[in-house]
Design a binder for these strands. Structure first.
Lengths: 193, 193
DNA sequence: AACATTCGTTCACTATATCGAACCACTGTC
DNA sequence: GACAGTGGTTCGATATAGTGAACGAATGTT
């Protein structure tokens, strides 16, 4: 069965992520912790605990911090994601009721390209390795293809979905029939870091 | 001057926004408040207060709720819904040779989520309006669906691709057969400008 | 040198977010 | 009817997030 990777593993790592975010964005802005506390209308103790990762702040305090840092609230909650490939077969979902499940979130600062790839029978296309951090997502619309990292390609048929890191050698190869694939390339924008 | 538009106008409305989000996403998932509390490991009182908009939850509780709802934590904090319809219909590819064609490029500074949506026959799911600037891309893997902006949905069948602005009311509705849709949500990261 | 600021942490106290239980409304089921 | 189960709200009790003050350490000022 498919264990869909949720990027929220533990609550503990959440406060750690918040701590890192706050500290980074604060120093980026050239603020001292005391000054941040002042501008946010919080006590120094709160900010100190926040950045030490031993806090479980309320949304109000987080909002105050975000406002003082001039960043959107959600930016403080982005956790580091370093996923492996996601392979989703056509029948992976449970049977009952309507279902909507997130398979993967790709961090901010991305440029997204949407491609459509058509392969005549028995054709192979070698994908160029993109810049580090690039994620490719394939959705097989018709036919069947062998695609993915060159080291470990996957057999896909219509309805299958594959997400993998695009910063390595990869390929798309059709079988006996023509194949159509929707491809999405999410690459990091070089400037945001 | 550049006052970075924080999507948190007032601190008070924040809890209201969270309340609305939680309630909508919960009913969408067909959960009762009691069941949500159970799955999230919270007390019914907490969930009740949350949905009543008279709570200032900690990130841990919010995270628990988001996890139980199978949605990213930040989705509970998004607020503001603006229109701006854009529709792109993926049609047939040319016939000869291998082809790789870029259909659309979405500007940088995006966060990308990959979802899978499964619809039993004759089922409608109302999509929650995402933050402004969000783009949704649907690829119908199986069956046929009527999807898109609520004001102007499109008829899609297997292999069809639809991209539209997700920051408005939208829907996914299946016909007589069950449908499977891969859904991609590209949302702007407001910190980058 | 002594003094004044500012920074960041730690501590007891207060405010409050969460819990557990009680409660009422509603829906079956016998 | 009585009864058991679920859903949602309200209310004290409790755990804890936040505060305010004190502290040592740096740094600058006279």
């Amino acid at each position: 069965m498919f264990d869909i990777a949720n990027d929220s593993p533990t609550g503990a790592s959440l406060s750690a992520a918040i701590a890192a975010q706050v500290r980074v964005r604060r120093t980026q802005r050239g603020l001292s912790a005391a000054e941040l506390a002042r501008q946010a209308g919080l006590s120094k103790a709160t900010v100190s605990a926040l950045e030490a990762g031993r806090a479980n702040p309320t949304v109000d305090t987080l909002d105050a911090v975000a406002l003082a840092l001039r960043i959107p609230l959600t930016d403080l909650l982005t956790r580091g994601t370093d996923p492996g490939p996601v392979l989703l077969r056509g029948t992976a979902m449970p049977d009952e009721g309507p279902a909507r499940e997130m398979l993967r979130r790709i961090g901010g600062g991305r440029s997204v390209e949407l491609w459509r790839l058509r392969l005549p029978p028995r054709t192979q296309v070698d994908g160029v390795a993109h810049s580090p951090g690039t994620t490719e997502i394939l959705l097989v619309a018709d036919g069947s293809v062998t695609a993915g990292p060159a080291a470990e390609p996957a057999e896909l048929s219509a309805g299958d979905l594959l997400a993998f890191a695009g910063d390595q050698a990869h390929l798309y190869r059709s079988g006996g029939d023509p194949a159509e694939v929707a491809m999405l390339i999410a690459s990091p924008v070089p400037g945001t870091s």
